[in-house]
C-alpha cells in the first residue's frame, strides 16, 4: 500500500499558503485572494525514485496571526510541517521565533520547513537586508506566482518524511 504522509501548511493569513499548494499541485496561480476558512485538503503523489513514491496529504489551514488558536484536531497525525511567511509583509515574520515555538509545542518532533514566500515582490538586495535585520532563519525563499523553488520545498519535505518512516 502507498505510504501517505500528512503535511500541514501554517502561517499568518494572506502569506500564500493556498497559492503554494495550488502551484505545486496544479501548477496554477491566481492574483485574487480568497481567504481560506477551516481547512482544505488535497493529495498529491510524489515520485521519490523511479520505483518509489509517496502520497502527500496537504492540509491547507486557515491563516492566523495567533497560532495558539489553531484547532488541535487539524493537527492530529501530522507528519511534517511547512511554515510560511510573506517576505513583503514584516508582520508575518516579526514574531517568527515565538510562532515557531508555538508550532513545535503543538506538534512536537516533526520535520519543519520555514518558507519565505512572495520573493518576486521584493528586490534581491532588500530581501536579504530585511531578513538579516530581523535575524530570520528560513529554509526556502519561494514565489508561488513565478513557481520559483515551490516544487523544491515539497520534494525536500517528502524526502525528509520518507527517511522518517
Amino acid at each position: 500500500m502507498q505510504r501517505s504522509k500528512k503535511i500541514v501548511i501554517l502561517g499568518h493569513f494572506g502569506v500564500g499558503k493556498t497559492s503554494l499548494i495550488r502551484r505545486f499541485v496544479t501548477n496554477q496561480f491566481s492574483d485574487k485572494y480568497k481567504v481560506t476558512i477551516g481547512v482544505h485538503i488535497t493529495k498529491k503523489v510524489v515520485a521519490l525514485t523511479s520505483e518509489d513514491s509517496i502520497s502527500l496529504i496537504l492540509w491547507d489551514l486557515e491563516g492566523t496571526d495567533d497560532l495558539d488558536q489553531i484547532r488541535d484536531a487539524y493537527l492530529l497525525g501530522t507528519h511534517g510541517i511547512i511554515f510560511v511567511f510573506d517576505i513583503s509583509r514584516p508582520s508575518t515574520f516579526q514574531h517568527l521565533k515565538t510562532d515557531l515555538q508555538i508550532v513545535s509545542r503543538k506538534i512536537p518532533d516533526r520535520p519543519l520547513l520555514i518558507i519565505g514566500n512572495k520573493k518576486d515582490l521584493v528586490p534581491e538586495d532588500e530581501l536579504h537586508e530585511t531578513l538579516n535585520e530581523h535575524a530570520i532563519q528560513y529554509n526556502y525563499l519561494t514565489s508561488a506566482k513565478t513557481g520559483d523553488m515551490v516544487e523544491e520545498v515539497f520534494l525536500d519535505l517528502a524526502n525528509l518524511l520518507n527517511k522518517d518512516a
Binding site: 476558512i37 477551516g38 481547512v39 482544505h40 485538503i41 486557515e62 484547532r71 484536531a73 487539524y74 492530529l76
Partner: peptide, 12 residues
C-alpha cells in the same frame, strides 16, 4: 489515540 470521539470543524 485515547479519545474515542474526534470533531473536525469547517472541513471543505
Amino acid at each position: 489515540l485515547p479519545e474515542r470521539v474526534h470533531s473536525f470543524y469547517c472541513i471543505h
